[in-house]
């Protein structure tokens, strides 16, 4: 039984091979032995794989682990293959916000026919205005946020009617 970790948008396989005398993990097919694994939880820890200990700082952020190692910071997620609501594949029905912010103005209304690139909503975040446009042709099904409303990153602002099978 292995685990999938996501780093920089890529999946990696990690499996436990052995625990004694040292922890051996198989990471992406290659075995690594760790003579030191550091303590649990957040903070400054050290790993030892080979001769030299490697210092790192770890912090947990909800379900995510943040690692600062070698002067760089990384975010690692653990995939849960059985979590609900995992949608496979891309879904172009939802127009999502690329960043948290506020709705400045709405340039469309429900029922409008749109083509790829039609501006739908102007949003603003951190004093930056951006226009969200339709990614494909279709019909505006629902506008989920009103002018002046704030939203978080990846929130759905506009929904298009789902694409039907082309004859």
């Amino acid at each position: 039984m292995g685990f999938q970790l996501i780093l920089d948008g890529e999946e990696h396989d990690v499996a436990i091979v052995r625990r004694r005398p040292h922890l051996v993990l198989r990471i992406d097919g290659i075995q690594h032995e760790f003579s030191e694994i550091g303590g649990p939880g957040d903070g400054l820890h050290a790993l030892k794989c080979g001769k030299h200990p490697i210092d790192f700082i770890r912090a947990s952020d909800n379900e995510r682990q943040i690692i600062r190692l070698g002067g760089r910071t990384f975010e690692v997620d653990l995939t849960d293959p059985f979590s609900e609501g995992m949608e496979s594949g891309g879904n172009m029905d939802a127009v999502r916000s690329p960043m948290p912010g506020t709705v400045v103005s709405i340039q469309c209304k429900e029922g409008d026919t749109v083509v790829r690139g039609t501006p739908l909503v102007t949003i603003e975040s951190m004093k930056l205005q951006t226009v969200l446009s339709a990614m494909r042709e279709g019909t505006v099904a629902e506008i989920l946020r009103a002018e002046g409303e704030t939203f978080e990153k990846d929130a759905i602002i506009v929904m298009l009617e789902p694409e039907t099978e082309k004859a």
């Binding site: 039984m1 292995g2 436990i16 091979v17 625990r19």
Partner: peptide, 8 residues
């Protein structure tokens, strides 16, 4: 059974 057991 192999899937059920803890690895290693």
């Amino acid at each position: 059974i192999e899937m059920l057991l803890d690895p290693g």
